[in-house]
Amino acid sequence: MIDEAVQPLLDGFVASVREIAAVEAIWLHGSLALGDYQRGRSDLDVVAVVSSPPTPAVAELHQELMRSDPLAAKLHCSYMLRSQLADPSVRHPTFAQGRYFDRPVTPVTRRELAIGNRTLFGPAPAGLLPPTSDDELSAFIRRDLREFWLPATRKRSNWYADIWVDLSLLTIARAHVTLATGDLITKRAAFDVLPRLGAPADVVEDIRRRRYGPAFRTGPWWRHTRAGLTRRFVRTAIPAVLSSR
């Protein structure tokens, strides 16, 4: 069941984007598809399957939605050509974080689409999207940890931002489970995994409260302390996760 405040935004997006793009299907992934959506905190992750490349009008549509509804700032959509659905290396036009750019639809997103199988318009993912193998999923997760998250610990400034703290710990916990079992878990379920990986308890609680309730710490001292704790954990946890079976 989609949040009642979000449904009108999604309905309006579907109706509007179909007027300016050759849309064949619109799918949900992320927390909306997996049942862990938190209003105002979670992103609204969407994929639109199109039969021809979208025009710049889609970026204008997103900007207009953001002006009319604050929740639209978190509406992220990748526009995938139907002819390219089978190739995970293709970079697709995407509107996210207030800008329009190209990025691939990753094996993790593809698996989320398959698990959720949630559609706003047209055929469901199971009817169009080729399956992602366990080997493809595992290889992507290992590469993401090794080539993105681990090198990111070399730079101190990133770790003062909430999003880096949140995503790094939750990504590591979810990666640990997927590499061990092949399953994808929600961000909520990741909180139960982090203590077993040795994550700093105060940082875990900070993330939990900012996602599911009011924050319990503020100010520069905590941000500085949290940044150091998070960087040290990420540096040690990633090699451990990559070496585990």
Rank of each mutant, 00 (worst) to 15 (best):
K74T: 02
T119P: 01
A139Y: 02
L61F: 10
V17D: 06
A15W: 01
P70Y: 08
S89Q: 15
R245I: 03
S168Q: 10
D202Q: 10
G40M: 02
P220F: 06
S42D: 02
D43G: 01
R208M: 02
L169C: 08
N117P: 07
P214L: 11
R210K: 15
D45K: 01
P56W: 07
W159P: 04
A72N: 10
T106L: 10
A25M: 08
A201S: 12
M66I: 13
A240P: 00
A199I: 07
D206V: 02
R154G: 09
Y100V: 07
Q97E: 15
R91L: 14
V234D: 04
W164Y: 14
A96C: 13
I115Q: 13
R142S: 04
P220T: 12
G12T: 02
Y160P: 00
V108N: 12
V90I: 14
A114L: 12
R174Y: 09
K74R: 15
R18G: 09
R232F: 00
G116T: 08
D43N: 00
P214Y: 09
P88H: 10
A124I: 10
M1W: 05
L10M: 12
V193M: 07
L32W: 02
P88V: 11
E19A: 15
T109H: 07
D144M: 13
H62R: 09
T55C: 03
W222R: 03
G213T: 05
I141V: 13
R209L: 15
A124D: 11
L242V: 06
G228E: 13
F233L: 03
T55S: 15
A237I: 01
G12Y: 07
I163V: 11
W149Q: 05
I20M: 11
A173D: 04
I26W: 06
T119E: 13
A72M: 08
K74I: 00
T178Q: 12
T171F: 05
L170A: 05
A57V: 04
P107W: 02
S16H: 05
D183S: 12
S16C: 01
P70C: 08
K155W: 11
Q84Y: 04
R82N: 06
V193S: 05
R209M: 15
D202I: 01
A114I: 03
V203P: 01
R196Y: 01
A73V: 00
